[in-house]
Design a protein around this nucleic acid. Structure first.
Length: 596
DNA sequence: GTAGCGCGCGCC
DNA sequence: AAAGGGCGCGCGCTAC
């Protein structure tokens, strides 16, 4: 069952079950809405709404969670740019409504051919309702509203019907259905992660800062240890006034001191011998910590023992998430010790071991590569197969293949990988070739890469003119190769993001089931907000890694659910194809202890 | 005073 | 240790 939600008149919310009628079966005020959702949730509907980020926080604030949804904004971004719907969209029979946020103008032409997803996913995401015989009402013409909650119900219904039609007409409807469901589940999870917050121990964080930077400086001053290194660098460069935080200033001072660098970046500095370099690198390290994740970050981002970043599911081209504010996806390892479970609680920390090579093996249906990944250590498996001599070589070669390395050790090793795993190599090479000629490529479940920009196309066509100069041609070739590296990586990174979404979505439903029969002692009530009191819940997500905060006595059960969900994600994407997704999994009190 | 950009660097 | 993909953020700096 689906329930479509939209605005009806000022301040009223209409609820429609399109399998029954396009007329609302109920209209309520925004204040009444959460209670109505709570009551209807027992019927296990899929909530169809314009934008989860707008609708769901309000529900969570009232202590209401929903099981499933269809996020029309996120789904439109997928459906309207997928190469798998290109022919269905051809001719403009399914125009995007004006209220949707503008996306890239056009999806590219049919791109990389990637294997078809298994259709064995109906149970988990329960997509049986997706093809429901929904009638399409006349599309209401609306301007783009400031708040998508005010999109009229008729416009929401029309958009829903449009999306269902396009998915059905897609070349791979099963895959695209799964992708829409997984992306929407991600939107629910993103909002819940924010509501729950990551448990953050201010005292532990401050001790790390004091250990590295010295005592907290007074406002406007730099920490003592930064000043010490800065003084040392200035003396050793013979530049008493140089501002180390100014790239231009610093570069001049370095050159005057005889260090011939092109930039002030750490990796280039390290290639030179000069006594000032070591303290300069140390200064930069501390400066980064001080400006990005020190006391002012704590003041701004940690409230009541919780770090609450704003996650942006689907925020990047490849489908990885972004965050806005707080830098949640760039937390330096040395401050992660501040992530500490509440008393009586544990953290279940899990990350997928070598996710991307495994995703590639499945994507290409490369039996030999999947065989190397049988067992915990993919890179060890490659060495074991005699492809390269050392684990480090295996790692560099694999990364080189996925990122398009052409030079260095990585570039030299890639050909050996190509001989051992021709199918996998052919898949990424084809993705690169497609990108080089400006075509879009598509992930396993149907997310397509954006087309290159107008400048890129202009450079390519300039180079093909008779009067093109050598410089024109060089620029065009270099641009083509850059874009090819992007599309090469896109199919792998994007499909890995899909695996991770399925993993998290499956985990979330397992955790909800665990919570459903939870009778956790009252004394374990903690500070994480009403919805998540006393129940295991996700608190962090980082591309291939998750953290669940759970009452300690539930930790083993949660860990099993995490592993189950990973296995199921593999089956959802690859069916019976034998690619494994082992986890590094730990039950700890502090995030810092999970690496051990 | 602020918007926008390049740089450098944190994470995957 | 090294130059290949994806991001966000803070800084200095320039242009307005």
């Amino acid at each position: 069952m689906r329930i479509v939600v939209g605005a009806m008149g000022p301040g009223r919310v209409a609820l429609v079950d399109p399998s029954v009628s396009l007329e609302p079966f109920e209209t309520v005020t925004m204040q009444e809405f959460p209670a109505v959702v709570r009551a209807l949730e027992s019927r296990h509907p899929r909530w169809v709404w314009a934008d989860t980020r707008r609708w769901y926080p309000r529900l969570l604030a009232e202590g209401v969670r929903v099981d499933r949804c269809h996020d029309l904004v996120l789904a439109a971004a997928l459906i309207d740019h997928s190469t798998t719907t290109a022919s269905a969209r051809d001719g403009g029979a399914h125009p995007r409504p004006a209220w949707l946020p503008a996306g890239p103008a056009e999806a590219g032409q049919a791109g990389a051919v990637v294997p078809v997803a298994s259709a064995a996913h109906a149970a988990l995401f329960d997509l049986g309702d997706f093809d429901g015989e929904t009638q399409a009402p006349e599309a209401a013409v609306t301007d783009r509203p400031r708040d998508v909650r005010s999109v009229p119900i008729d416009a929401v219904l029309a958009e829903h019907a449009r999306q269902l039609a396009l998915v059905t007409a897609s070349e791979r409807p099963g895959a695209l259905r799964l992708l829409v469901a997984a992306e929407s589940a991600g939107a629910l999870i993103g909002a819940e992660l924010h509501a729950a917050g990551l448990p953050w121990h201010r005292g532990v964080h401050e001790r790390v800062l004091e250990g590295e930077l010295g005592p907290k400086p007074s406002p406007g001053r730099k920490p003592a240890r930064m000043e010490e290194f800065a003084a040392e660098v200035r003396a050793l460069l013979g530049a008493p006034a140089v501002n180390l935080d100014s790239q231009v200033d610093l570069l001049k001072a370095l050159r005057r001191a005889g260090i011939q660098v092109e930039s002030t970046s750490r990796w280039e500095l390290r290639e030179h011998e000069h006594p000032a370099i070591e303290p300069l690198v140390a200064y930069k390290k501390l400066a980064r910590l001080f400006s990005a994740n020190a006391w002012s970050w704590l003041d701004e981002w940690v409230v009541d023992g919780r770090f609450r970043p704003d996650y942006v599911p689907g925020g990047t081209a490849t489908g990885r998430w972004a965050t806005s504010g707080g830098g949640a996806l760039q937390l330096p390892k040395n401050v992660r010790s501040a992530v500490v479970a509440d008393p009586g609680w544990s953290l279940v920390v899990a990350d997928a071991a070598q996710l991307e090579p495994r995703v590639l093996a499945g994507l290409a249906r490369d039996e030999a590569m999947a065989e190397a990944g049988r067992g915990r250590d993919f890179y060890g498996g490659i060495v074991g197969a005699g492809v390269v001599e050392t684990r480090d070589q295996a790692k560099v070669a694999i990364l080189g293949a996925m990122y398009g390395a052409t030079t260095g050790e990585s570039g030299r090793l890639v050909p050996r990988l190509a001989r051992a795993y021709p199918s996998a190599m052919a898949l990424v090479d084809r993705a690169a070739a497609d990108g080089e000629r400006g075509a879009s490529v598509t992930t396993l479940l149907g997310r397509s890469s954006p087309p290159p920009g107008v400048e890129w196309r202009a450079a390519q066509s300039r180079a093909s003119q008779p009067e093109a100069t050598a410089a024109d041609e060089r620029r065009a070739r270099s641009g083509a190769r850059d874009w090819g590296r992007f599309t090469r990586n896109f199919v792998v990174q994007g499909t890995a993001a899909e695996w991770a979404l399925c993993w998290m979505a499956g985990l979330r439903s397992r955790l909800m089931a665990i919570a459903g029969d939870a009778a956790v002692p009252e004394q374990l009530a903690h500070r994480s907000g009403p919805v998540f009191e006393r129940i295991p819940h996700l608190v962090y997500y980082l591309h291939d890694e998750i953290i669940v905060h759970t009452p300690r006595e539930r930790a083993d059960e949660v860990a099993a659910a995490v592993a189950d969900a990973a296995n199921e994600a593999g089956r959802l994407l690859y069916g019976a194809f034998p690619v494994e997704f082992p986890l590094d999994l730990a039950i700890v009190e502090s995030y810092a202890l999970a690496d051990a």
